[in-house]
Design a protein around this nucleic acid. Structure first.
Length: 899
RNA sequence: GGGCUCAUAGCUCAGUUGGUUAGAGCGUUGCGUUGACAUCGCAAAGGUCAGAGGUUCAAGUCCUCUUGGGCCCACCA
C-alpha cells in the first residue's frame, strides 16, 4: 500500500479534490453560535471586472491563514466574501465590449445599457470568485454579496437618506475633478496625482493704457505664467500679491484678454506667490480650484470654456469645438503670431489622472453632490487615537490621522449609468432644481405643486459610497427578519459585527478603510473592525508594480499550475516581511514547492514505517516524559517552542516569521535531525508515537499556510474527525518545552558537526574509520553522550565508528579536535593534509585569543559590571572561561601533531 | 513644501522591546545516493550592517546629519 505513494508531491488532483470536499461538506460556512466567539474577516470585495493577480493572491492568503487559524482555535470563523460593482471600471469594460458591435452606450439608452452590464456581470463577474477558490480561500460562499444586490442597494439608499436628513449631504457647484473620457466627476482620491513633464507658458496680456490716468510709465503688458494656456479663454482677472512692488501701480487697472478681447481687472490677493513665475497669475475661476476661491472672494465671473468631453465650448470663441490640447496648440500659435507669447520654459508639474482610465483630469466647475466629512471624521479619529482600532504596522496610523484631520468633503455623484442611482427627484412642473426631493421611493406627486411629472436625478453614486458600508451592509442592515439567503439579519449583525481583522493594501486606506470606520461609527455606533493589517505591494524583480498593462505580472494561476497552490501561498508568505513590498520572480516559488515536497516525503517515510496500532490514542496519553529518550524530549520541546512562536507571530501579523519558523522546524529539526536519528530504531514504541505525533501536529499547524497538502497527508494518517481544517489547533503545552533537553541536544549536534568537519577537512573518505571521543570524567557531557546513543552518528555521517569514554584509550595517538569538555580523536596514519588542518587550528586560536582580549576588556570595565544586568555579566564571564579553556585545548591539539 | 520607507553575504531579503559568535533562501565551491526526498543530504567560502557624528556599560537596532533609491500627501498658477 505504501508503494502507492509517489516520490513527488503532485498538487493538481489533490487541490481540486479537497476544495470540493470542503465546500460540499459545508466546512466554510459559519452561523451565529453563542457557544463560540466570532472571528470575522471581510474580504476587500474585488471588482467584478477583476482578474486574479499576485496582489489578490497575497492579500487573500493572509486572510485565509487568519481565518483557518482562528477556525481551528475554536472560534466561529467567518470570512465574508463578495464583489464590488466598480461603477466606472465596469461601465468602461462594457462600453468597450459593445464597441465591438459598433455601439455606444448612448445608442442603447440607459435602460438597455444597464441590462447589458448585468448580462456582462452574470457572465464574467464571478471570474475572480472562482479564481479565489483556486488559491484555497475558505470564504463562506453561501453568504456571497454584491454591492448592487437589491438588498445591498437598500442599505445604500438608507445611508443617503440619513445623511441628508442630518444635513451632511448637500448639492452645489464647485470645482471638481472631471474625467473628460469617462464623462464624470471624480473624488479627490480618484484623481491620482502624477508628475508630468510640461511647460510654463509666459503670456503677455496688453495693458489698457487709455483707461489709465498715468503719464505713460506703465508697461505695455503684464506677463502671466500658466501651464494650461487654453484656460485663458475663461480668465476673468489677473491677480498679484498686494506686497509685490513690481505690480503695485497696476492693481485696479485692466487688461485686454487676448483672443477674446474681454476686459479683465488686475486684483490683489495675498494668496499669490510672488516667487512663482512672474508673480502675476491669470485667474480662471471655472477651471481651477484656487482661482475658484479667488473668484468667490472677489466676485468674479465664472466662465466655463469647455464641454464635458474637454473640447472647447461656445465661450471659447473661435476655438469652439477644438479638443483641449489642440486648442492649446492653436492658442499658442495665435499668441505667438501676435507677439504675446513671451517664452516657454520646461516645467515639471503634477496633474490629476483618472484612476480608471488615466486620462488627465480637468478641474471643472459643475453641480455635484457632496458629503460633509468633518463631522463623520471626528469620532473616527478618536477611535483610532484611543487605540480601539489598531493599524499594523503602526506607522499607517499617522497616515490615517493626517488624512482624517485634513479631510475634504466627498464628491459622491458620478455622471455614469452603472451604479446606485441617487435617491433624488425633481419636479418638472416646478422646474426648480434647487427643490430636490430626497426620497427612498419615487414620490407620486410633487409636494409643492402636486404635479405627477417627477423624474429622478440622472447621476449615480460613487462606488465607494456603497463599499464603505461593507462591514454591516453585508449583514443586510437595516433589514430585519430573514434575508434572501435564509440568514437572520439582525442576529447576524449583532453576532458578527464588529468584525475582527481587516487585511488590505495601503492604496485604499483613504478610499475604503477610513470611510468604513466613519460609516461604522455613524450607522452602527461601533467601530467596524479592531485590527487593520496593511500589507505591501507586489512588485516585479525590478521593483515595478506588477500590472497587466506593464506586462510584468506573474499569473498566480500559472504558478499554481506549475508549482501548486501551497507552494504559491507558502512562498508568498515567507518572503513578505510585515508591511514591506514584495519583489517577486518566478524562481521564488521553487522554495515553496520544495518545502511541500519535503513535507510529502517526510510523511511518506513515516507512513512507510508506521506500525499499525502503535499510535492509537490510548498509548498516546499514558507516557511519562521522563521515560522518553533525549531526542524525543528534544523534538517535543522544539515542536512546542515552534508552536509558541507561530502563535506569537500570527497574533502580531508577522506571517513571514511564523512561516519561516515552521519551515526551519519541520525541515531542519524534524527531518534533518530527528528522523535521521531515530531511523535505526524506528520501531521503538516511543519513537513510533512521537514521530507520528509530531507529524500530525505539525500538519495541523501548517494547515492554515498550506491547506491542501496538509489535508491530503492528514487524511492518510490515522486521524480523528472529517477534515484537518476543522480539527483543533494543537494546544500549547508549555510544560513540554524542555530547555535542558534542547541544550543537551545541542552538545550532541556539536560533537557530530565536529566529526563531520574533521572528516571533510582531513579528506577522510567515507567508511568505517574509528573515532574516539574522550570525555572528561567530571563533565556531564559524558552522560549526555552515553544516553544519546551516539551509534546513530554512524548512520548519519556514514563515517566513523564512535567509541566513547574509556574505550577511547589507546585508540589514536593524536587529538585532532576539541570541544568544551571533550576531545575527539581520529587516528592519523595514512591521512593526507595535516598541514592545512594545522593552519585552521592556528586560525581558530588567533580568533579565540582576540575574543578573549575583547571579553577581558569588557569585564574590566567598571561601568559594565555595575550597570549591565547581572545575567549578562555572568554570561560574559562564562564565555571568557570557555574561551580560555578552548584556547588551551586547541594548543594541545596543535602541539599534539607529531606525525 | 510635509510625511513615510529602504540601504545588512555575489543576488533577493529577515533581524521584534539595544545584550551570546549578525541569519535565511537562491547562487558559488567541495564531498555524498544500496529504501522518505537530487524538488535531497553534509560541509565550506563570502559581511568594517551606505557614510559621518552622537546617546549608552553595550548600537545592525535609538538620535542627528549626509549620500543614494522607492512611495504617499499638498491648491506651486
Amino acid at each position: 500500500m505504501t508503494d502507492e505513494i509517489s516520490k513527488q508531491y503532485s498538487p493538481k488532483d489533490v487541490e481540486e479534490r479537497w476544495y470540493k470536499f470542503w465546500e460540499e461538506n459545508g466546512l466554510f460556512s459559519s452561523k451565529v453560535n453563542p457557544q463560540k466567539k466570532p472571528y470575522v474577516v471581510l474580504i476587500p470585495p474585488p471588482n467584478v471586472t477583476g482578474i486574479l493577480h499576485m496582489g489578490h493572491a497575497l492579500n487573500n492568503t493572509f486572510q485565509d491563514i487568519l481565518i483557518r487559524y482562528h477556525r481551528m482555535k475554536g472560534l466561529e470563523s467567518l470570512w465574508m466574501p463578495g464583489t464590488d460593482h466598480a461603477g466606472i471600471a465596469t461601465q468602461n469594460v462594457v462600453e468597450k465590449s459593445i464597441a465591438k458591435e459598433g455601439l455606444k452606450r448612448q445608442d442603447l439608452g440607459r435602460e438597455k445599457f444597464i441590462e447589458r452590464v448585468w448580462l456582462w456581470k452574470e457572465k464574467y463577474g464571478s471570474t475572480i470568485i472562482h479564481q479565489l477558490r483556486k488559491i484555497g480561500a475558505s470564504c463562506d460562499w453561501s453568504r456571497l454579496r454584491f454591492t448592487m444586490d437589491e438588498e445591498y442597494s437598500k442599505s445604500v439608499v438608507e445611508v443617503f437618506l440619513r445623511l441628508y436628513e442630518k444635513g451632511l449631504i448637500y448639492r452645489g457647484s464647485y470645482i471638481i475633478n472631471w474625467c473628460p473620457r469617462c464623462h464624470t466627476a471624480l473624488s479627490d482620491e480618484e484623481a491620482a496625482h502624477q508628475p508630468l513633464k510640461g511647460n510654463l507658458y509666459y503670456l503677455r496680456y496688453p495693458l489698457n493704457r487709455d483707461l489709465s490716468s498715468t503719464r505713460g510709465d506703465l508697461p505695455d503688458y503684464i506677463v502671466v505664467a500658466t501651464t494650461r494656456p487654453e484656460t485663458m479663454l475663461g480668465d476673468t482677472a489677473i491677480a498679484v500679491n498686494p506686497k509685490d512692488k513690481r505690480y503695485k501701480k497696476l492693481v485696479g487697472k485692466t487688461v485686454t484678454l487676448p483672443l477674446i478681447n474681454r476686459q479683465i481687472k488686475i486684483i490683489a490677493d495675498s494668496m499669490v506667490d510672488m516667487e512663482f513665475g512672474t508673480g502675476a497669475v491669470k485667474v480662471t475661476p471655472a477651471h481651477d480650484p484656487n482661482d475658484y476661491a479667488l473668484g468667490k472672494k472677489h466676485n468674479l465671473e465664472f466662465i466655463n470654456v469647455m464641454h464635458p468631453d474637454a473640447s472647447m465650448n461656445a465661450s471659447a470663441g473661435k476655438y469652439e469645438g477644438l479638443e483641449r490640447f489642440k486648442a492649446r496648440e492653436k492658442i499658442l500659435e495665435d499668441l505667438k503670431g501676435m507677439g504675446l507669447l513671451e517664452k516657454i520654459a520646461p516645467h515639471e508639474l503634477s496633474a490629476g489622472h483618472c484612476y480608471r482610465c488615466h486620462t488627465i483630469v480637468e478641474p471643472y466647475l459643475s453641480k455635484q453632490w457632496f458629503v460633509k466629512m468633518a463631522p463623520l471624521a471626528k469620532p473616527a479619529i478618536k477611535a483610532v487615537k484611543e487605540g480601539k482600532i489598531k493599524f499594523y504596522p503602526a506607522r499607517w496610523t499617522k497616515v490615517y490621522l493626517n488624512w482624517m484631520e485634513n479631510i475634504q468633503d466627498w464628491c459622491i455623484s458620478r455622471q455614469i449609468w452603472w451604479g446606485h442611482r441617487l435617491p433624488v427627484y425633481y419636479c418638472k412642473g416646478c422646474n426648480d432644481e434647487a427643490g430636490a426631493i430626497v426620497s427612498g421611493v419615487k414620490p407620486k406627486h410633487c409636494p409643492k405643486c402636486g404635479s405627477a411629472d417627477i423624474y429622478q436625478d440622472e447621476d449615480v453614486l460613487d462606488t465607494w459610497f456603497s463599499s464603505w458600508l461593507w462591514p454591516f451592509a453585508t449583514f443586510y442592515w437595516p433589514q430585519k427578519g430573514l434575508s434572501p439567503k435564509g440568514t437572520l439579519c439582525e442576529e447576524d449583525l449583532k453576532y458578527f459585527y464588529p468584525t475582527s481583522t481587516l487585511v488590505t493594501a495601503a492604496e485604499i486606506i483613504f478610499f475604503w478603510v477610513a470611510r468604513m470606520i466613519m460609516a461604522g461609527i455613524e450607522f452602527q455606533g461601533k467601530i467596524p473592525f479592531r485590527d487593520v493589517y496593511i500589507h505591501g505591494t507586489v512588485r516585479d524583480a525590478e521593483g515595478k508594480k506588477m500590472s497587466k498593462s506593464l506586462g510584468n505580472s506573474i499569473d498566480p494561476l500559472e504558478i499554481i499550475k506549475e508549482y501548486g497552490c501551497d507552494a504559491l501561498r507558502f512562498s508568498l508568505i515567507s518572503i513578505t516581511a510585515q508591511g514591506q513590498d514584495v519583489f517577486l520572480s518566478k524562481e521564488r516559488f521553487e522554495q515553496g514547492r520544495n518545502f511541500a515536497n519535503k513535507i510529502w516525503n517526510a510523511s511518506r517515510f513515516i507512513q512507510m514505517n508506521l506500525i499499525p496500532d502503535s499510535v492509537n490514542s490510548d498509548l498516546c496519553i499514558f507516557f511519562k516524559k521522563e521515560d522518553l529518550s533525549l531526542v524525543n524530549r528534544w523534538i517535543l520541546s522544539r515542536f512546542y517552542s515552534t508552536l509558541s512562536e507561530v502563535e506569537k507571530y500570527l497574533d502580531k501579523f508577522r506571517f513571514n516569521e511564523a512561516a519561516n519558523s515552521l519551515y526551519g522546524f519541520f525541515w531542519h529539526e524534524f527531518c534533518d535531525w530527528y528522523l535521521e536519528i531515530i531511523k535505526p530504531d524506528i520501531s521503538n514504541p516511543h519513537n513510533q508515537l512521537i514521530m507520528y505525533k509530531i507529524l500530525e501536529k505539525s500538519l495541523r499547524v501548517m494547515h492554515p499556510f498550506m491547506p491542501f497538502i496538509t489535508e491530503e497527508i492528514w487524511q492518510k494518517l490515522p486521524h480523528e474527525g472529517e477534515s484537518i481544517m476543522v480539527s483543533s489547533w494543537p494546544h500549547l503545552q508549555k510544560q513540554i518545552i524542555d530547555k535542558k533537553a534542547e541544550k543537551e541536544m545541542s552538545v550532541i549536534f556539536e560533537v557530530i558537526a565536529c566529526i563531520r568537519n574533521m572528516r571533510l577537512a582531513l579528506e577522510i573518505p567515507p567508511g568505517t574509520l574509528d573515532v574516539g571521543v574522550k570525555i572528561y570524567p567530571s563533565d556531564n557531557h559524558n552522560r549526555i553522550l552515553l544516553e544519546s546513543n551516539l551509534e546513530y552518528i554512524k548512520s548519519l555521517s556514514r563515517a566513523p565508528n564512535l567509541i566513547i569514554g574509556e574505550r577511547y584509550q589507546g585508540l589514536g595517538k593524536e587529538y585532532v579536535n576539541v570541544l568544551s569538555g571533550m576531545h575527539i580523536s581520529i587516528p592519523l596514519q595514512g591521512l593526507v593534509d595535516i598541514e592545512s588542518y594545522k593552519v585552521k587550528i592556528e586560525n581558530k586560536i588567533l580568533k579565540a585569543q582576540s575574543d578573549i582580549k575583547a571579553k577581558k576588556s569588557m569585564l574590566s570595565n567598571k561601568d559594565f559590571i555595575n550597570k549591565a544586568p547581572k545575567e549578562i555579566v555572568e554570561a560574559e564571564k562564562d564565555k571568557l572561561t570557555a574561551l580560555e579553556k578552548e584556547v588551551q585545548k586547541l594548543r594541545g591539539v596543535r602541539d599534539g601533531f607529531k606525525a
